[in-house]
Structure formats: C-alpha cells, structure tokens
Design a protein around this nucleic acid. Sequence first.
DNA 1: ATTGTACGGTTGTCTGATAACCTTATATGC
DNA 2: GCATATAAGGTTATCAGACAACCGTACAAT
Lengths: 246, 246
Amino acid sequence: MVMDFSQIRRNEHLPARIASQIGREISDGRITAGEKLPTEHILAKTFGVSRSVVREAIAQLRNEGLVETRQGVGAFATDIEHRHSIRIEQGNLAHRASFQSLFQLRLPLEIEAAGLAAVNHTDEDLVRLDEALEQMTGGEKWTEKGILADLAFHRQIAASTHNEYFLLFIGFIAERIHLAINTAREAAVLTEIVEVTIAEHVAIRDALASRDPVRAREAMRHHLHGAASRLDLQLEVYWGVGRGSS
Amino acid sequence: MVMDFSQIRRNEHLPARIASQIGREISDGRITAGEKLPTEHILAKTFGVSRSVVREAIAQLRNEGLVETRQGVGAFATDIEHRHSIRIEQGNLAHRASFQSLFQLRLPLEIEAAGLAAVNHTDEDLVRLDEALEQMTGGEKWTEKGILADLAFHRQIAASTHNEYFLLFIGFIAERIHLAINTAREAAVLTEIVEVTIAEHVAIRDALASRDPVRAREAMRHHLHGAASRLDLQLEVYWGVGRGSS
DNA sequence: ATTGTACGGTTGTCTGATAACCTTATATGC
DNA sequence: GCATATAAGGTTATCAGACAACCGTACAAT
C-alpha cells in the first residue's frame, strides 16, 4: 500500500525553466527572428537569478538552434528553419492526433528502408536480424524484453541499409513511438496478437534475405499497417498505385 | 606561471568541443551506460578549463539525452537509444557519401508528403504554394533569393500535409541539404537549368491542385531524381514496382 | 531492528573579476 | 576630404572561489 505523492512538484532545474520561458517568447513571436535578446545582465535581473543560470539557459537555446550568440555583440533569435537539431517532446505524443502523425511519418521511412536493406544488407546483418527475431520468439513473449527486441529488429533493418541517416531517423522515431505505447500501457490486448507480429517480422526477414526489394517493401508495409490497425490508428489512406520511390 | 599548450586549443566554443569529446567517450563505449562520469572538478582539471565550461558541456550532453545528472550524486551516461533529439553536424555533409545518404532519406519523405498534400491541402495552401513559385520565376533567377524560394516551396508542400512531423523533418532535412549545396557553391552551372527546375515545380503544383496523389508522388519523384542527377549524385536504385505506401 | 544524526562528497547557484571580441566614435595622417 | 589607426564602452566567454541544496553512508541512540 503506497500513498501517491507523485503530485509533489520538485524544484525543476532553474535554467531549463528560464530557457523554456525565453523560448516561448521566441516561438510566440514576441521576439522576432534576428532580433537581439536582452543582455545577460538584464535577463539575470529580470528573472531574479544569477548570470550563470541565464548563461546556461541561453546555452540550451543555442543547442536547440533557437538563438545564436556572438561574442561581444549579443544573443539573437534565429529563424525556425535554421535550427540544427530536431526534438520531440514526449508529452506531445500523449495526444492521439500527434501520435498518429508520427506513425504516418514512420511509414514511408521504414518501407523505403526495407527496400534498401534488401539490396544492401550483408550476411552479418542477416545474422543480427535473426538474433533479434529469436529474442522475440523465445522466452517471455511480450514483456519489456519483447518490446525491446521489436525495437532492435526495426533498428537492425535500418542499419542494414548502410545509410547512417536512415538508422538515425528511424531509430529515433521508433523509439519515441515505442515509448509512447509503453507509457499508454494498452499492452494488455497485445499479448494475444504477438504471434501475428512475429509472423510478420519473419516475412520481412525472409523477403530481405531473398534480396527482393519489392517483396521487402510490401512485407514492411503490411506489417506497419497491421500494427497501426492493432493500435486502432486511422491513417491517411489513398489507393494509389505508384512505382517504388527509387 | 606555466606555459602549457598541451591542453585544449581554444579556437571556437570551448564547451562544445569538450562536450563532443566526452560524448565520444560515451559513444565509443569507454564510458558504458549507467556509469558515473568523473566529477566536474576532476573534469575541469583534466581538460584544463574552469568548472563553468565543464558544466556547460555537461548541460549540452544532458539536452541531447546522453547523460543524466542528479544533484549531490553525479552525472551518469544514459543509453544511446534514450536521446530525445536528433542533430546533424553540418561538417559531415561535406563528405559526398554522407550528403548522398541524406538525399536518399529525403526521397521517400518528400514523395509521401506530395501524395498526402494532394489529399489534404486547403485552398490557402495552394495560394501559398503559388506565392513561392512566383518568387522563383520572377526577378532574380537563381540567386540567394531563388534558393530560399525553392526551400519555401518544399516546406509549403510539407505543411500542406497538415502533419506536423512531416513539416518538422522535411524542413529540417531540406534546410541541411540546401545549406550544404550553398557552401559547396557549385551553383555556377545551376543558372542554366533553373528553367527545368521551375517546370518541375509547376508540375508538382498542378498535380497537387488536381488532388491526384499518384500524379503528385510521381511528379515529386521525377523532380527529386532530376535534382539528384543535376547534382551528380548516384542514388541507390532498384526497379521495383510497388504500390504507394498507404 | 529502526530511527536519528553527523559527515563528506557532488551538483546547483551566486558573486565578482578578467579576457576576448565587436561596434562606434574620435583622432590622425595623407 | 578621406581612409586608416586608435581609443572607449559594452557584451559575451571564461575563470576563480564560495556557499547552498542534496545525496549516500556510517554510526550512534533508542
């Protein structure tokens, strides 16, 4: 029997709070692109903290690409298109619409990756793929470990493209999606359909091994659409018949 | 007083270099996941900088999700798959192979986006698309402004999907690619083929307006492959004939 | 065995100072 | 008059040292 003290609001990292506050000023347009921010001294006075905290906050914004600093001049808000990092707040994915959108983005990426992997994979890639499959089939079926194995499977396919960016982006997106599913904990119904999932994975693996990109793409598409419907997602669908993207 | 040049060369942004150095220690596995980093004092001594710089470096790693810090305890390396932001160093794209890889990632994303935009765009989206087109055709042909208009065109297509993540990712990738092209400055030859590019853009726009996702996908694919060959890129190609991804 | 407490270590924040750098204005030389 | 050199002031970058907040552990007290 545990009391729920989860609503206690911990003191949460001063610089982060100030950074998000300044960031909101920029996002909401109260500070337009190219405009100079107040000096660190003034910001420190304004927020009632020391300059160190302000500096750390600005450093965070700089890392996210929202501002640029020039020594001896000041800090400037940059254009949104200018930022050199992508970040997704996990909280956003709690909304179903946002979750669907990310899943829809995942579709073309993974399908294309399957096609590329069919062409580019090495024998070693296949071995690793089989290892991930084994971890799913053997032992605990859909525990934490099974989910990790599922993630590893998709990551390994991305890696088999031998295109660093496919691995980077797919790994990132798949991780976010799996995390969102995990926190939502609708996993209760998932235990019974794990067999289907495994079968679909095997189909993808076999298509890869045969070095048939069309079959690999089709298998991945089938798998993802199956996963989507299992999650009760309604994805944009059009019944076009087009060639593969390459 | 001791002269000591064996430490860190201070040409540009000290914390960033130290952050990447520590980050490499983690990525290369010299510091395994969950392991505790040296204390800030020790790190400061090790790198020959002040604690402020080390703190800023660790703050950066924390933003990238590579480490977690607990007050009174220390900083700990986290799992790689745990990071909640994607970043691409612009320097990487100077290598042709890396540039090609990113362009290849762009293909399925933009093609899918064209198909979705054909279905989901509003009248207002079309107006904005035409504005971007006008900026390309009118006035200066392939100056800085023309390139920006090209970027705006592709961003507007992504926006027309009304899927926030397509806009986020495509905008990010297209920006990186355009920046890399810009710095490479092979733009000399581009002036003469701008007419072709504009024609391809118009074709995409018309396909969108007709709300025909298949035609839109095909037009985008044709455009991107044309752009790739103009940049002398050799993309992975397989002649599969598959259905659209949705 | 549980609770209370003191202690050392670590990160978080503050304060003040110095160095490096940029912009602008002024002075200087031609 | 004009271009260049120099000085001045402001801003960020870095440094140094201190204290506060917090954690884990060891040990004493009950």
